[in-house]
């Protein structure tokens, strides 16, 4: 987090120069250019999965893997990808990785796959994955692109887990499915379980985060 006394430097352009180091690419995604709080991407899943901490956690792992690997792959191919079809190509790469995750889960962790239901497949439509491929991986070398994807996934995960850590206890009186003793007499707030509560929570979080910048 940046010290509030220091003058904030001008924002970096979205299409970063090839000179960005892996560490810088990784770090700025966590807070300074957080995909959810700053770029307002990945909102759909931020609303849909954050009523349960466990689902959120697994979704986040899937997203970190997909963003990192697809950015790496797109960056490897970046000089060969024809410009006019570049987004189709990015989507093809992303979808392949997501199907690989889904298949591996079905084969080796059927209980987890069953818990997640349709969420894993929905990683394909997460704007962050394609956003990083288009904004960073297309103009940078593979290793920084990989770290940029990891950072974006972790930045997203931080925000989602925070939302889930508020929504699940208030909505269900549990955390990760474990009943919370001190909330034994809490009346479950159904609003917290449905998507609108995700909107309210995210809006409050955005407000706090932006006023601290």
């Amino acid at each position: 987090m940046r010290a509030s006394a220091a003058p904030s430097p001008p924002p970096e352009p979205m299409s970063a120069q090839p000179s960005v180091t892996s560490l810088a690419a990784f770090r700025r995604m966590l807070w300074a250019e957080n995909p959810v709080l700053v770029q307002i991407l990945g909102i759909c899943s931020a609303l849909a999965v954050t009523n349960l901490v466990k689902n959120t956690f697994i979704m986040c792992l899937g997203l970190i893997f997909t963003t990192a690997m697809s950015s790496f792959t797109v960056s490897l191919l970046r000089d060969r990808i024809p410009r006019r079809v570049r987004m189709m190509i990015q989507l093809l790469v992303i979808a392949s990785y997501v199907i690989v995750i889904q298949t591996l889960l079905d084969a080796f962790a059927p209980a987890v796959a069953r818990q997640l239901g349709p969420y894993v497949g929905l990683i394909i439509t997460n704007c962050i994955v394609m956003g990083r491929a288009e904004a960073f991986a297309m103009g940078n070398r593979p290793v920084p692109a990989f770290w940029d994807g990891c950072g974006a996934g972790l930045g997203y995960s931080g925000v989602l887990l925070l939302l889930a850590a508020v929504r699940e206890p208030l909505g269900m009186g549990t955390f990760c499915g474990v009943p919370l003793g001190f909330m034994a007499h809490w009346t479950r707030c159904s609003l917290m379980v449905v998507a609108p509560a995700g909107f309210f929570g995210l809006a409050a979080l955005l407000w706090i985060a932006r006023s601290r910048r």
Binding site: R80, P82, V85, I89, L92, V93, A95, I99, A107, P110
Partner: peptide, 27 residues
């Protein structure tokens, strides 16, 4: 453009179908 797209589609398709084929019985 057409050749590149076709080639990459074939590669990704083969990878995904290969995995499905290898693990299909288990699934």
């Amino acid at each position: 453009t057409i050749l590149f797209t076709a080639l990459l589609t074939a590669v990704c398709g083969a990878a995904v179908s290969g995995l499905q084929l290898a693990l299909g019985e288990r699934i």
